[in-house]
Amino acid sequence: MKTLVKVTLVLVLIVMAFAAVTLSVSAQDDPRRPVSDDEVNAVSKKLYCPVCENITLDTCGTLACAQWRDEVRILLSEGNTPEQVIENFVVRFGDRVVGTPVDPLLRAIALITPWVFSAAVLVGVAVVFFRWRSEGTHTAPMAAKRSTEKTPNATHSLEDYRARLESDLAARR
């Protein structure tokens, strides 16, 4: 994993250094396609810059973010897809620049953990419930009887509805 990151990093570096050199040479005759603000914003919406905590790049007002947006524009104009641009940023600036980490391990930890905890809660509730049921069969039949008495047969007339409502209200007092 780590070596993979390093290799990509080095590759990107070489490409970058190369691009920087060529760019400074041929800044005048611009072969790049024009990129609209909307395209830049669409990518920036998915990026977070470390200077503006928890604010996406498209809405952050700092100069640092303005420069990052320019970088997004340049990368797009060089023919990168939005996914490639985001990948490029992640390789250079780390997983903190995206709303959910790209690194598979971090991503799994971020996304699966809440469900693991939730599953634990569900298992806990289920255990309690089944224990109650097994206890309930010999300790609490009285309550069960009372509540079945109270439940009228399924009918729909307003009269019954009101009766049920009243009994509900009465039970509250």
Binding site: K46, Y48, P50, N54, T56, G94, D95, R96, V97, V98, G99, T100, P101, D103, L105, L106, I109, A110, T113, P114, F117, S118, V121
Partner: peptide, 27 residues
């Protein structure tokens, strides 16, 4: 749990134990 983990759990755990800063945003 999901919101607590996303706001306070994951970012702190990742920074402390995995040495990586992460952002959990709207995404």
């Amino acid at each position: 749990i999901a919101i607590f983990w996303g706001s306070f759990g994951a970012p702190i755990v990742s920074e402390l134990f995995l040495g990586t800063n992460i952002t959990l945003g709207k995404d």
